[in-house]
């Protein structure tokens, strides 16, 4: 049985003591910290900013923990808390600060086909750079859909947009990427 059986569902009322709440908050941090960091990194493209945003997100969660909507699943709440400052930060900074692809990448293990690996890596790097040239609103949708695997309905809940907006932003973002990367696809 999972350690977090009720992670996305409300805790039983009898367990709503401060100590249990604090413990639950701590467990959620350990469970979600990597996912939170990865999402922030995917949005802002910079490990240092991603770490700052992750820290602030969990501080905010801790601050509002007792007053949270207990019927709301935790993951979309966490993602929406990370998403707002990340989008805002990127919007204020603009695309001027180039994302360092190498800084974000794990070391590849030896591959049997170096040429294929090179081609694949080149495409991935181009995709990453192209995604980071999208507007923050356009970028977050493919990140949430293709990197995080959320359904349109969940993306709408996280971003606070309608299903139609999510659909159209994802279409627009992919269309821009497809046109930019056409000859590599």
């Amino acid at each position: 049985m999972s350690v977090f059986p009720a992670i996305d569902s409300p805790l039983p009322i009898a367990r709503q003591t401060a100590a249990v709440e604090a413990e639950h908050c701590g467990l959620l941090f350990r469970e979600y910290r990597l996912r939170a960091y990865r999402f922030a990194l995917q949005l802002v493209g910079n490990p240092e900013d991603a770490m700052d945003i992750t820290q602030e997100a969990f501080l905010r969660i801790h601050k509002h923990w007792s007053r949270r909507d207990k019927l709301r699943p935790f993951a979309p709440w966490l993602y929406s808390i990370i998403r707002n400052p990340a989008v805002d930060l990127y919007r204020r900074r603009g695309a001027r600060k180039e994302t360092n692809w190498d800084e974000t990448q794990p070391q590849e293990s030896p591959h049997p086909d170096p040429e294929a690996l090179l081609e694949k890596d080149e495409l991935k790097e181009r995709v990453w750079r192209a995604i980071h040239r999208l507007s923050p609103e356009q970028r977050e949708v493919p990140v949430l859909r293709d990197m995080q695997g959320f359904a349109y309905k969940e993306i709408a809940a996280i971003t606070g947009n309608s299903l139609t907006t999510v659909n159209s932003r994802l279409h627009d973002a992919r269309e821009i990427l497809r046109r930019k990367l056409g000859r590599y696809l």
């Binding site: 941090f29 350990r30 910290r33 990597l34 960091y37 990865r38 990194l41 995917q42 490990p47 770490m51 992750t54 820290q55 969990f58 501080l59 801790h62 800084e103 974000t104 990448q105 794990p106 495409l123 991935k124 995709v127 990453w128 995604i131 493919p142 293709d146 990197m147 695997g149 992919r174 990427l177 497809r178 990367l181 696809l185």
Partner: peptide, 25 residues
């Protein structure tokens, strides 16, 4: 495009960085 996007891997921070984050929190 969708496949390439979903396969983008990201270097996770070291355990030390995450522990440091937990301590700061």
């Amino acid at each position: 495009l969708k496949k390439a996007t979903s396969e983008l891997a990201f270097l996770p921070p070291s355990d030390d960085r995450m522990d440091e984050l937990e301590q700061r929190l």
